[in-house]
């Protein structure tokens, strides 16, 4: 799997998957609950995703706790995490950075921008970025 998305807003999930489908040869999974996402990740130990797209507002736990658990895990700590949130609050951005997020992106206001963003992310994190060996 290439990208794991943790996102609970159904509409945004819809746009995200549409945008991801436009990308060629990308495998992705979208999870509405942090718990589901963690479960899936622990089952993927053999082939970890190349990156995670993570929202802050989640129904079961917030994105920050998710991120903390990820970074505390020996297996998962190297996976790049890009925060994708509607919050522009500098405190949220700073917190994400402190907890070890690799990037912070605010949700765009329209589908065309979402497409551009997904394109950029895939280009950078899947095609240019080199992950340390797990």
């Amino acid at each position: 799997m290439d990208i794991v998305c943790v996102e609970d807003n159904e509409d945004f999930t819809f746009f995200l998957s549409k945008a991801l489908k436009n990308q060629e040869n990308i495998e992705y999974g979208i999870y509405g609950l942090a718990a589901d996402a963690l479960m899936a990740l622990s089952n993927m130990e053999v082939s970890l995703p190349k990156m995670i797209l993570l929202d802050i507002d989640l129904p079961d736990k917030d994105g920050f706790s998710f991120l903390r658990e990820l970074r505390d895990s020996n297996v998962l700590k190297h996976i790049p995490v890009v925060m994708l949130s509607s919050s522009e609050n500098p405190r949220d951005i700073q917190k994400a950075c402190q907890l070890g997020a690799n990037a912070y992106v605010t949700k765009p206001g329209g589908f065309s921008q979402i497409k551009v963003l997904v394109q950029d992310i895939c280009d950078f994190w899947l095609r240019h970025h080199r992950n340390p060996a797990a």
Binding site: D11, K107, G109, G110
Partner: peptide, 16 residues
């Protein structure tokens, strides 16, 4: 902040 999300969604649906 709360208004922003649905509005963004409307915008996206229109574009789509």
């Amino acid at each position: 902040h709360d208004l922003k999300t649905p509005l963004n969604n409307i915008h996206s649906y229109l574009e789509l």
